[in-house]
Amino acid sequence: MSEIKLSSVYIRNSEKELFSDLSLSIPAGSFTLLRGGNGSGKFLLLKVIGGILQPDKGEVEVNGNEVYNYLASENTTSVPSAFIFQNGAMISNLNIGENLMLPLDFHFPQMPLTEKKKKIEYYMKLFGLKNILNVRPSNLEPDILKLAGIIRAFIVEPGLIIMHEPFEKLDDDQINIFEKLVEEEYKKGTSFILSSRINRKLSNMANYIVELYDHKIEWSGTIDEFRNNLILND
């Protein structure tokens, strides 16, 4: 379970201010749905929460740890968060097996090789993937790459999984397996953040909503507060 706290986050690029004084608090164990139109800053916010992008000012804490520095310290004892990217983002000069082994080797150096292979095999079977471990990403279809990216996130058993457009490129069967996996992990205590243009069953699992508009938090709160807010506005 991971509590997420952003305090006065400020980010600018060479041209303009992207986030100015953005604060947000998401309770531990939440399934958060991140809403917002194109260009509202959803991916940027996810990158900040995932420790990929260090804010120019302000703090981002996941489970009490300043996430960017925590990741940079290469603490291998726990994995605060994992990210599912829109395109899978598999490392192109490694084959799929090496790609999946990489986070395991890095975070669990003491884990026996057989156990690591067993873990990979488990997820391969779950998604019905065969004979792809020795194949480079460039030789695989986008849906397979996406599934490999999903496996890479789940395999390290992180406290928080950040999902950016996870349904894109997947067919219905693949989405059903994925949704079942997310449900199981959520019951075990993993937090999730979902940003998706496609509405699926998972979107209805959300118990916390964050709405972004033009790089600002338009609204954030529990699903009940969100519904009440909608009723009041109507």
């Binding site: 420790g51 990929i52 290469e74 990210f83 990217f85 983002a89 598999m90 490392i91 986070p103 890095f106």
Partner: peptide, 21 residues
């Protein structure tokens, strides 16, 4: 070229998100 393409494909982001510098 390789590193540039890795940035474009989010591969660098993926490494950072895994805690790998």
């Amino acid at each position: 070229t390789e590193l540039g393409n890795m940035v474009v494909n989010n591969e660098i982001n993926a490494l950072t998100s895994m805690g790998i510098s």
